[in-house]
Amino acid sequence: MGLKEISYGELIPLAVILIAMSVLPMLGLSSYMLTLLSLLLLFGALVSIYDFFYIRSGYINLGYTFIVASSAFSIAITLERLPTALAILAAFPLSMLFSIAILVPMLKLRGPFYSVATLLYPFTLAPIARLFPEVFGGDVGIYVRPLLSSPTHLYYLSLAISIGVLSLLFILLGTRLAIKLAMIKDDETLAESSGIGVVRVKILSHVMCTLMVTAVMIPYTQVSGVASVELADPMPVLIYALMASALYKPGSALYSFLGGMGIWWLDNFMRAAMYDLRLVVASSLLLTIYAARVVLGVAGTKIRK
């Protein structure tokens, strides 16, 4: 079974779900529900991006939240200083600038070295934010200038960006980039010996990943209203992304999207019902899912070949 069969079989159910989601606001949902659904969609997109660029390439980036948080900061920083259109345009190169830092280990390190090095990146953000509170707002973070006031509009913006991201990922699945990422995951030495420009593929995928994350973070920061170092914590984004992409089929946009939405829903429930147990439940779930994969003998397919 190849990559393409997986992707086209998923296109139809995904389209059905997204169409269903586009009519939801017409059912007169509360603005709380709409806000929650917006976050679900955006988180689903974040997980799909993670799954495509990192799980698929075998480069388990544990510093994904660094990209997420620095994208959020980029948007907040530019919105504070520039007119809207210009700010959004400027947010992309700014977040690229941040994330170049994390590209360097990707080019130099492999396997566990890469994972551990990237894990450290998010932890640099908190001390940096405390050292430069006038730029990053210290521990509290910075306020994001609101662009859309209506939750319905925000919901549609979130839906549009999620659809955009997912479509882009599906298009990429049909290209040779997806095959090349799988080749690098399988055997980097052989990929080099097969004339795959490994460095070029890595830079390209990193740039695309950062741009997509930044696009997702535009409505995300609008919904949350703040960009703070809290986003850089492994919990929730990284932990839930690792969980969602391991839930059913790794390297699958549909299942990681659905898994991401489902886990975010659960997280929202936990925040409301048992905030102080959230970390315990989430980490136990992550452990259980990975243990189940090992017991079922499918663990290997997820992270390595």
């Binding site: 190849g2 990559l3 095959i179 090349k180 399988d186 052989l190 990929a191 010996s193 097969s194």
Partner: peptide, 23 residues
């Protein structure tokens, strides 16, 4: 300049065709 390896090296997670399509 192209080579094969002592231990057979192919891309195991790709189909036969994709092994070639990738290059």
């Amino acid at each position: 300049i192209l080579r094969t390896f002592q231990q057979p090296k192919i891309f195991w997670s790709l189909s036969v065709e994709e092994n070639i399509e990738g290059v």
